[in-house]
Every structure is written in C-alpha cells, then in structure tokens.
Design a protein around this nucleic acid. Sequence first.
RNA 1: GUGGGUGUAGCUCAAUUGGCAGAGCACUUGACUGUGGCUCAAGAUGUUGGGGGUUCAAGUCCCCUCACCCACCCCA
Length: 415
Amino acid sequence: MKFRRVKGTRDVLPREAAARRELEEKVFELLAPAGFHPVLTPTFEHYELYKRSTGESSDIVIKEMYRFQDMGGRDLALRPEGTPSVMRAVLENSIKLPARLWYVMPMFRQDKPQKGRYREHTQIGAEIIGEGDPQIDAELVKIGFDLFTSIGIHEMFIELNSIGCRECRPGYIKKLKDFLVQHADELCDDCRLRAERNPLRVFDCKQKSCQRILSDAPLQTDYLCPGCADHFSQVKAGLDIFQIPYEENPRLVRGLDYYSRTVVEFKSRELGAQDTVCGGGRYDYLMQEMGGPATPAIGFAFGVERALLASRGEDVFSSVQPGIPLLLLPLGDKAKPYCLDLLFKLREKGIGVQAEFRSGGLSRQLKRADSRNAEKVLIVGDKEIESGSFIVRDMGTGEQEELTFDELISGLVNT
RNA sequence: GUGGGUGUAGCUCAAUUGGCAGAGCACUUGACUGUGGCUCAAGAUGUUGGGGGUUCAAGUCCCCUCACCCACCCCA
C-alpha cells in the first residue's frame, strides 16, 4: 500500500458518515426552534485572527496551529476553532445583533492524536452574540444538556464556574500568584512554570502533591466583584429551574484566552481520559478586542468524533456495505443495454436500483446479488425481453412474482 | 515534545528453547450453462511495517527507523 492517510486524520466510512448525518439532523432540530441559524466560514484565515482572539498564551496558538504561507506571502492558518471566525464574520458582514448562529465545520490542530482526538476533527458549535444576561447563560447550558441527552450520551455531568471579569480577575490572579510563590518549593516543575505564565492553569495539574496544595489555594469565586457574583448566582438560579445535574467546580479553567465570567464543560465518564465532550463559556470582550463594539457573547462547541464515541460506542466505526433495494440481473449480452435503459426508467420513478453488468449465468448472478446485499432482484433474460414479463425475486423470502413492464414501472413505486 | 504498548494474508489472530509462515472468516473457480444463502472440492493471497546486525539458519535475538493505539501535557 503506497499511500496512507496523514497522521491524525481519518476516513469516515459509510456507516459512520450516516451516523454523523443523523447527529447533525438532531442538532438542527434542537437549535432551530431556539432561533439558531447555520453559518459557514472559510477553512483558513489570517494567522493574526487566531493569535489575537484565541490568545497568545493558549496552547492552540503556541504550538498546535497549522500555519502556512500562500503564494502571495500571506500568513495563514487552518482554522483551529470556530469562535474567532464566526465573530469575524459577524463583524465583517455587519450581522444584526443579537444573533444566534451554529455551525458544523472541520477544525485543525497539530497535537498528538489519541482516542477521540484527531488533527482534523469536526466541531459543532453554537454562539449567542449580543446578549449578556445570566438567563442566556442558563438557556444555552440547558440547550447543550438537552442536545447531548438527545444524541444518547450517558453518564453526563456539567461543570460550571465563573472566572470573573476585567474588574475582578486581575486582583484574583495576583492573590493566586502570591499563594503559588509561597508554596513554590512544594509544586511540580510544570506548575512552577505555570505560576509565572498562566497561573490559572495550575488547577489543571494532575499531580497529587500539587492538588493537595491547591486545595488551600484562593478561589476565583471568592473574589468575584459584585457584578460577576450576581451574574453567577443568577446563572445558577436559572439552571435550578431545570432538573439539570450540574456541579460548581471552582477549579475549572478553560484553555482559551477570551473567556470571562461563565465557563462550562460537559463531560461523560464513558470517554476515558478525553472526558470532555463539550466546552464553552462567555466571551464578552472578544468582539471589542477584534476591533468591534463592546458586545457580550456566549457559546459552546463539541467534537463530533468524540460525541459519537460517547453516544454509540465502537460499532459506529466499523465498515458495512449498505444494501441495494433492487438489483437488475441481465442474462446474456443482449439484456445488458436493455437493463441500462430500464435502470433509468425505474430511477425516474424514485426507485433505488442498480444493475449487475458483470457477465454470468443466473446462478452466478444470484450469488452476486446475495453478496451485494440486494433486497430484491429483477431477472432480465432473452425470454423476459421477448415476452415483456419479468420475474421479481425477494432475496429475503425467496418469493417471486411475475410482472409486465408496465406493472413493473408503476407497481414497484409502492414497494 | 515525553512515556508505555502493538505491528504476521483483505479482516481476526496462531507459529514451542531461533529450524519448511499457518488457521478461521472473506475472496476466486467448480460441483450447479435460468434460481442465491447450506454443503463439498480446488485455488489465490505475504518483501512477517521498513533498514541494518548476530547466526549454518531470524516472524522469533540486538540496534535504528516508521506507523498505529493508549496515556502525559493540553484539549473537542
């Protein structure tokens, strides 16, 4: 085998492709009534867009982007996540706000592939732009919850936190940094680095020793300004209206720079290490940072591959040849052009039909029909062409009936 | 970028202390030239992931390399 797929990419075979379409339908059915409209953006953008929005301290920008130059010397990158592109599109096309947009688009990140994580993957995302009330946060979380429930993801739980705003976050980060410096000699090497660059990330550390120390660390929720504290408690009050299982996780931090206030993760215990199905949060400053007017916004996104893993298990990914409703079996060379003609006369009637043009006797043709998973076959030999009466055989039951050409054309429409 | 595991026929996997590379499924052909699935018979399939080394002899031992899987970092 000479050519292989590029590391971290995958082939989506018919069975999984069908499952994806189903999933997309379900998402559409849930989002459309809530006012979401579909949107598509280019697969690549100016590198600068992601650098400025996703953030220079995010791992995506630091080491995971497919960055390249085109022949005009433009500095470009394959889209690593959807939000910056969607916001750019809103701004560039002067879309009327508030707006609700959703998308299903491929994303590209050059990190090490493992279960449920690929270098090219498909994300479905939903964004509410121009609405900042806490009820919106609760609405979006509820929509997400319903969505994952409807696609059959079990053992799901929601983690929720508020990471504050411009007013209160800097003060908290300073407090946290002071704490980390104090305990620097007890932390792992990674965490000492994090303490300098991006202190919030220490909460992601899996080291038990670090976790023990961090259990005494100051928490953002204790240092929220009155505005953020009120917002957060109203989000929770909103969620309490629904019977949604969520837990506050004061150590939940997200990897992108643009988040503020509400952050949320949807997790499933059925996924192993990659247990986050969906992440999201509020990003009230992003539009302004991109040069637009101050505009509150919130959104979530999830990976289709991971969602399918969590909802259907492995069987989704096996390859299965789909069956054929009706297969024409020509016998002899004269019957072949006749079948070719018949093929399209039947398709015009909306019948799913194919023909077996490889030569062979009836026995052979039936064997082929069997291995191709045909539900019914139509036997077309010289005898049939002459008499205008054809045998339709049900490959499941073995029952046969004889139909004239006209009966065939009209009668099969109902089968 | 770091660690662990696995690479043998299209697929799932065998192969004893180093000793003729095999089975099941799938495939092709025939028994059966106008009635499939079952059965029976025959057949085809490999640079044992790649390269190098040790040896009379390597799927097996050693070194290098690549790919995939799992995990870490991080994330969807």
